[in-house]
Design a protein around this nucleic acid. Structure first.
Length: 421
DNA sequence: TCTGGGGTCCTAGGACCC
DNA sequence: TCTGGGGTCCTAGGACCC
């Protein structure tokens, strides 16, 4: 059996854990630039707010009902995620991190010594006691069914946070009651397609012949079908190296000058490079894109991307930033108000330092060493302690808006929580 | 005034090779 | 009248996930 442990409304729960006065109150967490609502508690959902709503459109309801609002702080959530994961690893030996708020736990063998539901309930209680994060666990024979079970565990209090689908009767009943659009692997497109074909519940899908499913939904849909019928086939074992690395942001204010665009691109290039070195890789290809504000129909619209292949795969911030600056120059257009830019690294290979006979960069090892020193200093003294001058000093127009930010209580000694007695 | 960011896999079609 | 067959690689686009 396999379990899926899912943190309930994770970002909002972290904020609530760190602001105890908010227990039982509506809470919303915003995306980068305070743009959209990306996480909200059930109390906030009950007020009619939905995930994905633009913040400014929901502001009325928020203010009228005293909803607590926070700017998303991914560093903080990642730190809390690590704490939750470590408690799970104390309980089950083999675990697999699927996302910041979801973990698969392999329970094979545990049934000999434990009641699986009791074991998972104990873990859920431990996590609640030590971190204040509510967790729901689903147990079943496949990952897709475990996801279904975890949603039942979340929905009905009677389960005590843990729901297990361990018999054929339970599987059929669960699939007949579950919303097809909420099945892992069925997106809006395939949901519409299936509705048109007369398939309206997960059970109806599971009962179709395999060839029929393959014909209409191809390989990914066929795998979902197998999983719904109890045959495990989805492998989510960790991707060690990313194949592409992107950093992009919408700007707090629109920008128009070449210098501002280049400063934003330089800053994103640095961030990509340190992620790249963090996974001990080099990139063979650099792309830069920039665009106008697609919601402003009154302004001229623009979107462009330019790509450059590097002679040797590189993880050198100086070299990649220089390439990104040329690309930014190429796509800049005077008269356009830019809302967003980004850097994308691709063609990623293992190892930070590559060589060829005709390499134009001298002493490549020293350059890599220099970049790694930047990483260490920024890790030790805080992000952007040292960087390239082209990226600017930090108070520019293009910086994000974050008006409701929770301090990094868990990771930064200078921002640690103050308790007044 | 104000509308997020970062990934993966699969498939079809074109270019190119022998 | 009649114009091969089989393969690989790359790319763009679509679909999905959190």
């Amino acid at each position: 059996m396999i379990a899926l442990a899912d943190c309930n409304t994770f970002f909002a729960s972290v904020e609530r854990a760190l602001h105890p006065g908010l227990r039982g109150k509506p809470v919303c967490v915003l995306s980068s630039n305070d743009g959209n609502i990306v996480a909200l508690t059930t109390e906030a959902k009950a007020l009619g707010i939905r995930r994905g709503d633009p913040y400014f459109k929901a502001k009325d309801i928020i203010e009228r009902n005293g909803v607590a609002v926070f700017s998303g702080n991914l560093m903080l959530y990642a730190a809390m995620s690590k704490r939750v994961q470590s408690i799970m690893r104390r309980t089950v030996e083999r675990t697999e991190c699927y996302s910041i708020d979801e973990q698969f736990l392999y329970l094979d063998g545990y049934e000999k010594h434990y009641d699986l539901v009791d074991l998972m309930r104990g873990m859920v209680e431990q996590i609640a006691l030590w971190t204040d994060i509510p967790v729901s666990v689903g147990i079943a024979k496949t990952k897709t069914l475990a996801k279904v079970a975890s949603k039942f565990a979340k929905q009905y209090r009677g389960y005590g946070g843990v729901c297990m689908i361990d018999t054929e009767a339970k599987r059929r009943k669960a699939l007949s009651m579950f919303d097809l659009a909420d099945i892992w692997g069925i997106g809006p497109r395939n949901f519409a397609k299936l509705s048109a074909l007369g398939v309206n519940t997960p059970l109806q899908l599971a009962d179709k012949p395999g060839e029929w499913v393959y014909r209409h939904l191809h390989k990914p849909g066929f795998q979902t079908w197998l999983e719904l019928n109890g045959h495990p086939c989805i492998d989510t074992s960790e991707i060690v190296r990313r194949q592409t690395i992107t950093t992009s942001r919408s700007f707090g204010n629109m920008i128009s000058t070449r210098e501002e665009l280049k400063a934003s691109v330089a800053s994103f290039a640095s961030s990509c490079c340190s992620t790249l070195r963090g996974q001990d890789s080099a990139a063979g290809c650099v792309s830069v894109f920039a665009c106008s504000n697609r919601f402003r129909e009154d302004l001229p619209q623009y979107w462009n991307m330019a790509t450059q292949r590097l002679i040797v795969p590189s993880a050198d911030t100086l070299e990649i930033t220089a390439a990104a600056m040329e690309l930014a120059d190429r796509i800049y257009r005077p008269g356009i108000l830019f809302k967003k830019s980004g850097v994308l690294l691709s063609d990623i290979t293992a190892g930070c330092c590559h060589h060829t006979l005709f390499d134009p960069v001298q002493k490549r090892e020293e350059r890599v060493e220099l970049s790694q020193t930047l990483d260490r200093m920024n890790h030790k003294y805080g992000v952007r302690t040292v960087g390239l001058a082209v990226a600017g000093s930090g108070n520019e127009n293009w910086k994000n808006k974050k008006e409701h930010l929770t301090p990094n209580y868990l990771t930064d000694i200078d921002q640690i929580m103050t308790v007044q007695i």
